[in-house]
């Protein structure tokens, strides 16, 4: 299920003094099964873009084609329910939306809403809980007695139980400690690689964008500035700085090394191991002399 966005423009409160251009002629296509991250400073249009992908916002101009669904300006979205079943959205702090007495009931809520039988919903709840790596014993617990990281997993399980093909995530790691952060990103990677879900994630963390995604979309003032592989996007240091963004830590370090040794090339590497290995080899070469 490919996602194609053509000339997408969104204006908030048009024809009023508060009129604001949130998205400005965005054209992008996202093939099925990719892991895409979106970066951009606050107010660059990231969230507005996400909200178009499952019909929460409708374009002022342009269109969005998701599989056989088409969202265009000035007309009702057909089969909105089926679209939302296929495109699951995890908002910021999704744990704030937990409400049931037990974890099981909370996860079952989505599937039941989309017409599953009780038995099927229960089966999916078990499966989704396993996917987010929580033990079965949690099913009977109150979601409110869990830790922050666990609550977030339960909330995500609730979306996964709907069996979406595309998972949209708005800063899914905000507020988690380093372990919770890593575990939840590994989960998304697993869902992408092993379960074939398309992942579209907004993040402020440049390291995560570099490490986890097939492609990075950079947004600024409602426009899509670049969409490319992380190695290419993060090689554009000056551009990213101008947009209030940053480069991953590994590249900051490699830049320092390169400056110190009077070179002007910075190789785009994002993994620590690769970076350490590269630096060791670089020193070796320097030692042998030019």
């Amino acid at each position: 299920m490919e996602i194609t966005v053509k000339h997408l423009t969104h204006i908030y409160q048009p024809n009023s003094p508060f009129e604001r251009l949130a998205l400005d002629d965005i054209n992008v296509s996202i093939p099925f099964g990719k892991f895409i991250t979106i970066i951009g400073h606050t107010g660059s249009g990231k969230s507005s873009f996400l909200q178009h992908l499952n019909g929460l916002l409708k374009p002022t101009k342009g269109e969005i084609i998701i599989g056989d669904h088409k969202i265009v300006a000035d007309s009702k979205v057909k089969d909105l329910k089926s679209l939302r079943q296929r495109v699951g959205m995890v908002f910021q702090y999704p744990e704030h939306q937990l409400f049931e007495e037990t974890v099981e009931k909370d996860i079952m809520f989505g599937p039941l809403n989309f017409g599953c039988t009780e038995d099927e919903a229960r089966r999916r709840a078990r499966e989704a809980l396993e996917w987010v790596h929580l033990p079965e014993s949690f099913l009977e617990r109150s979601p409110f007695d869990l830790s922050g990281g666990q609550m977030r997993r339960v909330a995500i399980a609730g979306i996964l139980a709907i069996r979406p093909e595309v998972l949209i995530l708005d800063e899914p790691t905000a507020g988690l400690d380093p372990r919770g952060h890593r575990e939840i990103l590994d989960l998304f990677q697993w869902l992408n690689k092993e379960q074939g879900l398309t992942i579209i994630m907004v993040t402020h963390n440049m390291n995560d964008a570099a490490l986890y995604s097939d492609e990075v979309m950079v947004m600024d003032k409602g426009r899509l500035v670049i969409k490319d592989r992380p190695e290419i996007v993060f090689s554009q240091r000056e551009l990213l700085f101008d947009l209030g963004l940053d480069i991953p830590q590994t590249m900051h370090f490699l830049k320092r090394v390169s400056d110190k040794f009077g070179k002007d090339i910075v190789t785009p590497l994002f993994r620590l191991e690769e970076t350490a290995h590269y630096v060791a080899q670089f020193l070796e070469k320097e030692k042998d002399g030019p």
Binding site: P178, A276, H277, A280
Partner: peptide
């Protein structure tokens, strides 16, 4: 404890232990 180490500390460890610097 669920925490992490700063970037330089992790990188230094790798440079020493894995790359023999």
């Amino acid at each position: 404890m669920g925490l992490d180490l700063p970037f330089t500390v992790k990188l230094r460890q790798l440079l020493i232990e894995e790359n023999g610097l």
